[in-house]
Nucleic acid binder design. Structure first.
Lengths: 152, 152
DNA sequence: GCTTGACTTGAACCATTGTTTAAGTTGGAG
DNA sequence: CTCCAACTTAAACAATGGTTCAAGTCAAGC
């Protein structure tokens, strides 16, 4: 019961870095930001469970989608703390990005398809232009005049 | 000839801010970064030509597309310096983003469509996975092992 | 049991994209 | 000709996402 043979070995920070392709400095940073966590050995070194590898993968994929670490941390907080996450757990977390992603793909497609003619024709100065009208966007940007372009 | 009547009046930084919706502090920052430029009055105040409005619009739209200011600056450098840019000039500059944008839309669509099942099934640890394999991406990431995920 | 590579920390630093503040100057309306 | 809003600058500060460094500790192989 002390060390179950079929239980996969824990990973050091160097091993996790090597297998994930993420620099150890970034992994420690993620841990400070509470995106991942570790147990410590008696000598204060980190040991990660195997499923941390999947957590890190999720973090990097999410970052590629343009999602800030704070939002990723909040999504990861949905995972159970007492057991290894199941496929269903991961599916639920992944769903967090789906709608946002769909919206952003649509927005980018519109922008691409209208960029040249809108910039060329001068309608960038007109509120109704698809490029400059932020009403399509996900969330309101707060009060104040935003004639041309909403915040980046 | 000193002040041609049909020539539109120049804009102060406050006017450009008001009409573009971009804070004056950001406009001054863009000018320091050489994305826009102004002439100075005898009293050292900025005066912008009208077409700066379109330049600023282009900058903000490009930012929404996830393009860094340095790249926007390089694209804007393609515009003529001696005359007001024509529709064709703007079209050429806009083309800079098209291919990149198309690639990114495709990438994001793939990511969205495979996110849940890939994360759920565990294939995130496999090199061939669409989510983790950066070979689809635009540029090589430089040397060194990148097992799981390329840089964000 | 010693050596050496891997680990620990905090702090400083980096790039990007700005905002805020202080202290002073300009310019247009009346 | 005066007054005040709008302008000027440099420098400090902010948030995000890390990297680098110095100084010291741990652990695993020989």
């Amino acid at each position: 019961m002390t060390q179950v043979p079929w239980q996969a070995k824990e990973l050091t920070v160097g091993e996790l870095s090597e297998r994930s392709g993420v620099p150890a400095s970034a992994l420690r940073f993620y841990e400070r930001q509470e995106l991942i966590n570790s147990r410590r050995t008696s000598g204060n070194q980190r040991r990660y469970t195997r499923d941390t590898l999947r957590r890190v993968a999720f973090i990097r994929v999410s970052q590629r989608l343009g999602i800030p670490l704070a939002a990723i941390r909040d999504a990861l907080a949905m995972l159970p703390e007492n057991r290894t996450p199941t496929r269903e757990d991961w599916a639920r977390v992944s769903e967090c990005w789906r709608q946002d992603l769909t919206d952003r793909i649509e927005q980018m497609t519109k922008l691409r398809d209208h960029l040249t003619d809108c910039i060329g024709c001068g309608c960038l100065t007109i509120d109704r232009c698809v490029l400059t009208n932020p009403a399509d966007q996900l969330q309101a940007e707060g009060p104040g005049p935003r004639r041309l372009i909403s915040s980046p």
